[in-house]
Amino acid sequence: MTGAVLFDMDGVLLDSREAVLATLAGIATAALGRRVAITDLPRAAATTPRTEVLAGLGVRNPDALCATWWDPALATAATALFPGVLDGLAAIKDAGIATGLVTLQKRGRLPWLLPPGVLALLDVTVCREDAAPKPAPDGVRLALARLGVGPAEAVFLGDTPGDVRAALAAGVTPVGAGWGYAGAQALRDAGAAVVLHDPGWIGPGLLGHRVTAPAR
């Protein structure tokens, strides 16, 4: 029996890849004084620490620049929910199952990254400032503690090997989001119990994976 479904955000609920790449390219352009296009970024830029990407492009003091420019640049870049996310979350809630978000994003970004309708369907949100980042299991454990749900009663839907490792370390069933950053094979290799291939399956796919409201 599963009493909670936890989600990563970027690459799972939110299609933010192009926004992250555009933000990296914009900061590099402003810092270097020459045009840096998304196509100039390294192939793994979306999944590499941003300061590492910027330093590799020749940007000096990338930490300081990101502290100043990252949020304004990201806020103006285009992000969108993956199709089916809102309906899937609503179906999970309608089934009487708790929901939670465990993300590396800062809490202050959530109101302008996620629509109010999605935030209203999340019972708990654990952000960067709340716990050690994944693949550490701390955020997953904190979300479950706040929900009052045991690890054996929960699943975690993530799109990177780090998400899978965090779930496994917390004793939670890891489910892969094959449409996200890492891809289905990387999620299987990391130990995902099952990989969903379409965000439209968030509701039925998770509900079908032994995700049911706990007996009362």
Rank of each mutant, 00 (worst) to 15 (best):
L147P: 03
D163M: 03
P133L: 09
C127D: 09
A136Q: 05
L147E: 09
V124L: 06
A215G: 15
P161A: 03
G117R: 12
H197D: 15
K106I: 06
G162F: 02
A193I: 03
T212Q: 06
R60H: 08
G3F: 00
D71M: 08
A169N: 01
L119A: 14
R165W: 05
G96N: 11
K134C: 00
T79L: 10
A30D: 10
P72F: 10
W179I: 06
G26Y: 07
A4E: 04
K93M: 06
G88W: 04
E153C: 14
D198R: 14
D8P: 15
G26S: 12
F7S: 04
W201E: 15
A154D: 04
D159W: 02
A73G: 03
A193C: 09
P116Y: 10
L157S: 01
P42K: 12
W112G: 14
L86H: 03
A120N: 13
A215T: 15
R146F: 15
A213V: 06
G203A: 03
L196F: 05
L41E: 07
L57N: 10
R165H: 07
A166D: 00
R43V: 14
G33Q: 09
D198G: 10
A64D: 15
G176M: 02
A31W: 02
V20C: 05
V118C: 11
V118K: 04
D123E: 12
A145I: 08
L207S: 02
V172M: 07
A80R: 15
A182Q: 02
P72C: 11
V12K: 07
V53Q: 05
P204H: 13
D189P: 12
P199L: 12
A22P: 01
A184R: 08
A169F: 05
G183P: 05
P214F: 00
A22H: 00
L187E: 01
D138P: 02
P199I: 07
G208I: 03
A78T: 12
L206N: 01
E52I: 04
D198A: 13
A73W: 03
Q105L: 13
L142Y: 05
M1H: 05
A132R: 11
R34K: 05
A55E: 10
T39L: 02
P161N: 10
T2A: 13
V211F: 00
A98R: 14
S16C: 01
L121T: 14
P49D: 14
L74M: 13
G96H: 10
T160P: 09
G171S: 04
L74C: 08
L74T: 09
V164M: 12
A152H: 10
I27V: 13
A44V: 09
A55R: 07
A19Y: 00
D10G: 13
D10E: 13
G84T: 05
L114P: 04
V126Q: 05
A182H: 08
G88C: 02
P116V: 15
I38Q: 03
C66Y: 09
W69N: 07
A91T: 07
G178D: 07
V85M: 06
A78N: 11
R141P: 02
H209P: 08
V20I: 08
V12Y: 06
V195H: 02
V172W: 01
P83N: 06
R109P: 00
T2M: 11
L168F: 00
V36M: 12
V194Q: 11
R141Q: 14
L142T: 00
R43C: 12
L114V: 11
A78Y: 13
L24R: 00
D123A: 14
R35D: 09
A98H: 14
G176H: 01
L144T: 02
D94V: 15
